[in-house]
Amino acid sequence: MATGSRARTMPTPDGGWTVVQRGPFRLWDQVESAIEAWQKEGEPHQEGFGITVSGAGQRVWIGTEDGPGWDPPT
């Protein structure tokens, strides 16, 4: 399902970044939450991730299905 959500990053003159988000889903906020979860779990290799897809939706997880994770936008 297309939601019209989008996020854009732009470098700033001082070496930082500006993020612009539009639409019903705050996509960049979700990226930051995923990075924070990954860091909290010790920055596991990509083999430590999984995804479960069911009739109820999708869930990305770290370690085990019932471990830390998040629901990607649908």
Rank of each mutant, 00 (worst) to 15 (best):
residue 59 R to L: 03
residue 9 T to E: 07
residue 30 Q to T: 04
residue 23 G to K: 01
residue 26 R to M: 03
residue 65 E to I: 08
residue 24 P to A: 01
residue 34 A to D: 02
residue 11 P to K: 12
residue 29 D to R: 05
residue 53 V to K: 05
residue 68 P to Y: 10
residue 16 G to A: 11
residue 44 P to A: 09
residue 12 T to A: 12
residue 2 A to E: 08
residue 27 L to C: 01
residue 56 A to W: 14
residue 10 M to H: 07
residue 15 G to S: 15
residue 67 G to H: 08
residue 36 E to Y: 10
residue 55 G to W: 12
residue 23 G to I: 06
residue 24 P to Y: 03
residue 22 R to Y: 02
residue 11 P to R: 15
residue 2 A to C: 05
residue 64 T to C: 01
residue 60 V to Y: 00
residue 8 R to Y: 14
residue 33 S to I: 10
residue 39 Q to M: 13
residue 22 R to G: 05
residue 35 I to E: 15
residue 40 K to D: 15
residue 35 I to R: 13
residue 13 P to K: 15
residue 39 Q to D: 15
residue 68 P to W: 12
residue 17 W to N: 01
residue 72 P to H: 15
residue 52 T to W: 12
residue 59 R to V: 00
residue 14 D to K: 14
residue 43 E to S: 15
residue 57 G to L: 07
residue 10 M to C: 09
residue 50 G to K: 10
residue 45 H to V: 05
residue 66 D to H: 09
residue 50 G to P: 08
residue 3 T to F: 05
residue 69 G to S: 06
residue 30 Q to E: 10
residue 19 V to T: 09
residue 22 R to S: 07
residue 66 D to P: 03
residue 61 W to V: 02
residue 16 G to D: 12
residue 63 G to N: 09
residue 32 E to G: 04
residue 24 P to Q: 00
residue 49 F to W: 15
residue 48 G to P: 14
residue 60 V to T: 08
residue 14 D to L: 15
residue 46 Q to N: 09
residue 9 T to K: 03
residue 31 V to H: 07
residue 51 I to V: 15
residue 61 W to G: 02
residue 6 R to I: 07
residue 57 G to C: 03
residue 44 P to W: 07
residue 32 E to V: 00
residue 19 V to C: 10
residue 62 I to G: 04
residue 68 P to C: 05
residue 19 V to N: 00
residue 67 G to A: 06
residue 4 G to W: 00
residue 71 D to Q: 10
residue 57 G to S: 05
residue 14 D to N: 11
residue 26 R to G: 01
residue 29 D to V: 03
residue 47 E to T: 13
residue 69 G to E: 00
residue 57 G to T: 01
residue 3 T to L: 05
residue 71 D to P: 01
